[in-house]
Deep mutational scan, measured.
Amino acid sequence: QPKKFCDYCKCWIADNRPSVEFHERGKNHKENVAKR
C-alpha cells in the first residue's frame, strides 16, 4: 500500500482517494493549512 506524506500535518496517509479526501476534510488538517 503506497503512502502519501501530508506536508501540513507531517504525517503519512494511505495514497488512495477516500483516505486522502477524509484526511483533508479533517479538522486537524484544516487547522494546519490555515496556520501556513
Rank of each mutant, 00 (worst) to 15 (best):
K4P: 00
K27W: 07
F5D: 02
K10E: 09
V20F: 04
Q1A: 00
N16Q: 11
A34P: 05
K4T: 12
N28F: 14
F22Q: 15
N16G: 15
C9Y: 02
C11A: 13
A34L: 07
G26C: 08
N28S: 12
V20Y: 01
N16H: 10
H29A: 05
S19M: 11
K30Q: 12
N16W: 06
W12I: 15
N32E: 15
E24N: 09
K10A: 09
K3A: 08
H29K: 02
P2G: 14
Q1T: 03
K27F: 08
R36A: 13
R36S: 12
G26Q: 13
R25T: 13
K3N: 01
V20G: 06
K30G: 12
W12M: 14
V33M: 11
C6S: 01
F22N: 12
A34M: 15
C11G: 11
P18M: 12
N32M: 07
P2K: 15
R25N: 07
F5V: 02
F22M: 15
S19D: 09
K30R: 13
H29L: 04
N28W: 15
H29E: 05
E21F: 04
W12G: 05
P18L: 07
V20T: 08
E24S: 07
W12V: 06
K35R: 12
G26H: 14
V20I: 06
F22P: 11
C6P: 03
S19L: 03
E31K: 10
N32D: 03
N28A: 15
K35N: 10
Y8G: 07
A34F: 04
A14E: 11
K35S: 12
C11E: 12
R36M: 06
C6F: 01
D7P: 02
F5R: 03
N16C: 15
V20A: 13
P2Q: 15
D7A: 08
K30H: 00
G26W: 06
N32R: 10
P18H: 09
K35G: 12
N32S: 10
P2Y: 08
H29Y: 01
S19W: 01
C6N: 00
K3W: 00
V20R: 07
A14F: 01
D15C: 03
N28V: 12
N16F: 09
C9T: 01
S19K: 04
V33Q: 08
C6R: 01
P2W: 01
A14W: 05
V33C: 10
N16E: 13
F22I: 05
H29N: 03
K10C: 05
C9R: 01
E31G: 09
R17V: 13
H23M: 02
A14G: 06
Y8R: 09
P2V: 14
D7V: 02
K10N: 09
A14D: 07
I13T: 06
K4A: 05
F5L: 11
F22Y: 07
A14S: 05
H23P: 03
N28R: 15
K4L: 04
G26A: 11
D15K: 04
H29G: 01
E21N: 05
E24F: 08
N16D: 07
F22C: 14
C6D: 00
G26E: 15
H23K: 04
Q1P: 12
K10R: 10
H29P: 00
R17K: 10
I13R: 02
I13K: 00
K35Y: 00
W12E: 07
H23Y: 05
E24A: 05
S19H: 06
C6K: 07
A34Q: 06
S19G: 05
V33N: 02
K3Q: 14
F22K: 09
P18A: 10
Y8V: 06
D15E: 09
K27M: 10
Q1C: 00
P18I: 04
G26P: 02
F22A: 14
H23I: 00
F22L: 13
S19N: 07
F5I: 04
R36G: 15
K30I: 14
W12L: 10
V20S: 05
K27A: 13
C6T: 03
I13F: 14
K4E: 04
K10T: 05
W12D: 07
F5P: 02
K27R: 11
V20E: 09
E21T: 12
R25L: 10
H29T: 01
P18D: 04
K3S: 10
A34T: 13
F22E: 14
S19Y: 03
E21A: 08
W12P: 15
K3Y: 13
K10V: 02
F22R: 11
C9P: 02
K27L: 10
N32G: 11
S19F: 01
K35Q: 10
H23C: 02
P18E: 11
F5E: 04
Q1G: 02
N28L: 13
V33P: 05
K3M: 14
I13D: 08
V20K: 02
N16M: 13
C9W: 00
R25P: 04
I13A: 02
E24G: 04
I13M: 15
K10Q: 09
D15H: 04
K3F: 00
K35D: 11
K35W: 13
K30P: 06
K10W: 01
H23L: 00
R25A: 14
N28D: 09
N32T: 09
F5Y: 10
S19P: 01
W12T: 11
E21W: 05
K27Q: 12
S19Q: 07
C9V: 00
K35L: 07
E24W: 04
Q1R: 00
P18N: 08
P2R: 13
N16S: 08
F5A: 06
A14V: 04
Y8E: 13
R17T: 12
E21H: 03
N28Q: 10
K3C: 00
K27G: 10
C6Q: 04
E21M: 05
D15R: 05
E24T: 02
F5N: 08
P18T: 04
C11I: 12
E31T: 06
Y8M: 13
I13V: 10
F5Q: 05
H29W: 03
E31Q: 11
F22S: 12
K3D: 12
D15G: 10
Q1K: 00
H23E: 02
A34D: 15
E31A: 13
H29V: 05
K4V: 03
H29Q: 01
C9G: 02
K4W: 00
I13C: 04
C6V: 01
F22W: 10
H29S: 02
N32H: 08
E21G: 07
S19I: 01
R25M: 14
C6L: 00
F22V: 14
R36K: 14
K35T: 11
Q1L: 01
P2L: 13
E31P: 05
K4S: 07
R25G: 13
E21K: 13
N16Y: 11
E24R: 03
A34R: 10
R25E: 11
R25K: 12
E21D: 09
K30E: 13
R17C: 14
E21I: 01
P18G: 08
N16V: 09
K27E: 13
F22T: 15
P18W: 03
R36Q: 05
S19R: 02
W12S: 06
V33R: 09
V33K: 06
R17D: 14
K4N: 07
